[in-house]
């Protein structure tokens, strides 16, 4: 874990591929995690391969499609291009952390009710980005939703059901806060 002195020729050395040369402490979906990992490992590799949280997917690999979105200290990030080492001391939230005790949260229920998913590959990214939006703006306009989620691609739905789902989730939350049935 600390054996970074592998280069015999004295040149400043990098750890070999796969060598777990750095240690991080983080919280993932509320669970404390301490791991040694390869410094070049991306956050999504850490989540999928080390923690087996495979709900987070990868598509473009270039930080544009939004599929791999997770929240780091409540900020949405593209986990395909975010180094796992950089979550040291931070809290990570993924799609697996949304449901509580097996029950879908209001945003997830809204996606189901509005048919806002088809193949489902982009869905975790949309859920996390929409979570970030609703935490900042509990009652976003349609324009705000379109702008905020513009960096999340979907090839199946034509997007409108996703817009409707986010609006429904906001209304549901407002209804719950006002004591009305959701």
């Amino acid at each position: 874990m600390t054996s970074t002195d592998t280069a015999a020729d004295g040149v400043a050395s990098f750890p070999a591929a796969g060598e777990r040369a750095c240690t991080i402490q983080t919280t993932v979906n509320g669970v404390r995690v301490e791991r040694a990992l390869d410094p070049r490992m991306t956050l999504v590799e850490f989540l999928r391969e080390d923690l087996e949280l495979t709900g987070t997917k990868v598509s473009c690999g270039l930080q544009v499609c939004g599929v791999c979105t997770v929240l780091v200290d409540d900020q949405p990030v593209s986990s395909c291009t975010y180094l796992a080492a950089d979550v040291d001391g931070r809290a990570v939230r993924t799609v697996e952390g949304l449901a509580r005790e097996g029950a879908l949260n209001g945003l997830q229920r809204s996606f189901a009710e509005e048919f806002a998913l088809q193949c489902g590959f982009c869905t975790p990214g949309f859920l996390m980005m929409a979570t970030a939006l609703l935490e900042r703006d509990p009652d976003p306009t349609e324009e705000t939703i379109r702008e905020y989620l513009d960096g999340n691609f979907c090839r199946c739905t034509g997007y409108q059901p996703i817009v409707a789902a986010v609006r429904r989730a906001a209304a549901r939350k407002a209804g719950e806060a006002g004591g009305e049935p959701s």
Binding site: R48, L53, T54, G55, T56, K57, V58, T94, V95, E96, L98, A99, L104, Q108, F111, A112, E113, F115, L117, G120, F121, T123, P124, L127
Partner: peptide, 21 residues
């Protein structure tokens, strides 16, 4: 009837298994 998708639970919780998983 527009019944809900039977796969929504798996796809909304990250449990759905794709080949890449």
């Amino acid at each position: 009837r527009s019944v809900q998708r039977p796969d929504f639970m798996a796809k909304l919780t990250g449990a759905a298994q794709y080949t890449v998983d």
